[in-house]
Each structure stands twice: as structure tokens, then as C-alpha cells.
Nucleic acid binder design. Structure first.
Lengths: 98, 98
DNA sequence: CTGATAATTATCAATAATGCTAATTAGCAA
DNA sequence: TTGCTAATTAGCATTATTGATAATTATCAG
């Protein structure tokens, strides 16, 4: 399930979008302005983020407003935390000390 | 810089490797056994993780032992935390209340 | 309806990722 | 050295991602 999330974050432009949206909602055009890429290119990156549920889109009159979906980011954080957590599955090789 | 990290985590097999290594160091062969994929395929996934610095490889006699590199995972966590953190850049649209 | 602006979808070429089999390197034991 | 096991690299086909331009949809003003 977090598969698409990590994949979506695996592109610098898309992480920059997340960073811009962190400061507040932005329209498609406002986002597109920040990049050298053509608008349709940015739109497609936005779709990747939307498919991963990392952002939401809402039409507001003539423009479309994007927002971050915080809970999904938190899920990804949990997933990463699991990768560094101690196990206790009685299967360890190390951590004899501590 | 965390670019390769997220990209590396964007594949289920590679995340499973991280999960297996969480329980302790494993050899290439032990890891390969856990998957349906052919050994060379697993090796390549391991190389992707190694290039992203998410794991380390150390030859031990005839076998090669892999371990997680915890600090890089922690960096990725920081990166994600930045995506949900409040900004205070005097640029907000929302959070008028609270 | 017409025109203008906002944004998306369609299509295509180039590049990257994935997974396989075959060939190769590395260490160790006899 | 020879032979054996562990693991990687090489090469190739298939599929996915990326990015651009062109065409399309959507909303609103008049």
C-alpha cells in the first residue's frame, strides 16, 4: 500500500511540490510557475501524487486547488520507523548488548 | 540527496529486504531465498539499496553480509516530517484558527 | 453563444527500471 | 591447480516513466 507513496516521492519535482504545498494550498498554475517544466508535465506529476493520495485536488471556480494529505505522509513515516525499530521477534543476531 | 532513497524504497521487494534486514544481518543467499525472483534479480535490488546507502555489504569469507544503514532511513524520516511540519514562513493561507 | 483563461488529457519519442539466462569473479578446501 | 559453493556482472527483451507539443474540457464574462 505505501508502494505508490514512495514511488511518488522518488522524483525531485514531486517532492518540491510537496514542499510548496506544505506552506498552504496552491493552484495548478501557481505550482506550474515554480518549475521549468511545461504545465502538462507538472499536471502529470500532480496526478502521480494524487494517485498516491499524497495530495487532494478541488475545483474552485476556474482553477484547481491542491493540498497535501497529511495522513498519508504520516503513514509513510510509520513505515520508515518500522525499518529502524528493534524487533523482539526472538530472531536477532545482534543487539546482545544494551 | 534523498532522491535515490525514496526511489529505492519504491519497490515492494526492496522494502521487504529492508524488513528482513531489520531483524539482523543476512547474507545474499539468505535474502534471495525469501523471494520468488531469481538470485541475480535480488542482487540487483540489493545494489539499488546499496547505491542509495540504505544498506551496506561486507564480504565474510565466501558469503556477503548485508546490513541496514539506519542513519539514512532516519534522514528519510526527517524529510517526510518536513512535509507535514508547520511552516511559520509568514506565507500561510490556512491555519487562521487553532 | 463567443471569447478568454485555467487546466487536463492524448500522443509520441526517449530514457530508465525490471527480470530473466548465461557468463564471470571470489574464496576456500583438497 | 582443480573443483565447489557464493555471489555478482553482462546482455537482452519487456514494460514503465518522463517530458514535450497538440488537442480537449471546463468555467466564467459578456
Amino acid at each position: 500500500m505505501p508502494n505508490e507513496v514512495f514511488k511518488a516521492l522518488g522524483h525531485p519535482l514531486r517532492r518540491q511540490v510537496m514542499d510548496l504545498l506544505r506552506k498552504g494550498p496552491r493552484s495548478s498554475g501557481e505550482l506550474a510557475e515554480h518549475f521549468d517544466a511545461a504545465w502538462p508535465t507538472v499536471t502529470r506529476h500532480l496526478n502521480v501524487l494524487k494517485d498516491a493520495d499524497l495530495i487532494t485536488a478541488e475545483r474552485q471556480g476556474t482553477s484547481i486547488i491542491y493540498r497535501t494529505n497529511t495522513s498519508v505522509i504520516e503513514d509513510a513515516i510509520s513505515s520508515l520507523m518500522g525499518m529502524v525499530a528493534h524487533d523482539n521477534g526472538d530472531d536477532e543476531q545482534k543487539e546482545a548488548a544494551e
